[in-house]
Amino acid sequence: MAETTKKRKPKPPVTESLLTSGHRACAGCGESLGAKLVIDAAGPNTIVTTCTGCLEVFSTPYPESAWRVPWIHSLFENSSAVAAGVEAGLKALGKKEGINVIAQGGDGGTADIGIGCLSGMLERNHEVLYVCYDNEAYMNTGVQRSGLTPFDTHTTTSPSGKKSFGNQHPKKPLLEIVAAHNIPYATSATVGYPADLQLKVKKALKEKGATFIHLHVPCPLGWVYNTELTIEIARLAVQTGLFPLVEFKWGKVTRVRKITRERKPVEEYLKHQGRYRHLFASEEGKKEIKKIQAIADANIEKYGLV
């Protein structure tokens, strides 16, 4: 009865992505992967604004653009303000229905330079999805520390050496800061779980109000690891508890990704990366790893991840 057995319908051929080939990101770039997944989930009826940073520089060196959707760049701090203007303009013309507006920026452009404009956009509750691509430093200008660089990370402006183990400040709690604006939807996501990320983008675009995705994107250049490990490192960040996947609705935690079965010690995540190499070189460094483990444990307890 071979004819009657269920046969899977063949998938249609792979179509061209809305962030097309030929962009100048490094090999294995997590940010270009994240941007591709976000825009493909959002679809062609989307207007994108991007602030200065890697993403803007590699995707649109004049006179070329890798984007196949309307895209605009203005300044470092104001991609959220420009997106708010685009949304208000569309509403005034009565054309907002069916058109998504996405604002995006890197971790520096969001958490340091652009946090004022972002806060304004969230306060006025514009119907915009803001995506923060968090590669944990200013990678475009050569790996300087930002507000989202984690504790004890080596960067060129927080170098490790005899007197220091690198960045002395903890990572800014950006997602909590955003969620505290009482917006309909704010979540963290990672390129390590692409299906989860694309689902969250679709969920966010259905909301009638400001939404936010904090997207963790590994950077082979700044984090110093082999290019093929991008996805694996992104997954390890979640599994160790250093980057919890949490969804907020109207300021309250509604869903978390549990790591009960896949929980790993932080060394598993740190050992792949050259920016933490100094922690494995001395006895004092091992004590610092315990401090990083304490940060992961605090995250796990705070959101009940196990």
């Binding site: 270009s32 992967l33 591709k36 996805i231």
Partner: peptide
């Protein structure tokens, strides 16, 4: 296809290939 940062893998029905004009060889 999903994890290619350069969006250069195309194909259908168990036959997929990278467009070597754009593949940067990251190995993901």
């Amino acid at each position: 296809v999903t994890v290619c940062p350069d969006a250069c893998i195309f194909g259908q029905n168990n036959v997929y290939n990278a467009n070597l004009d754009y593949c940067k060889g990251c190995g993901i």
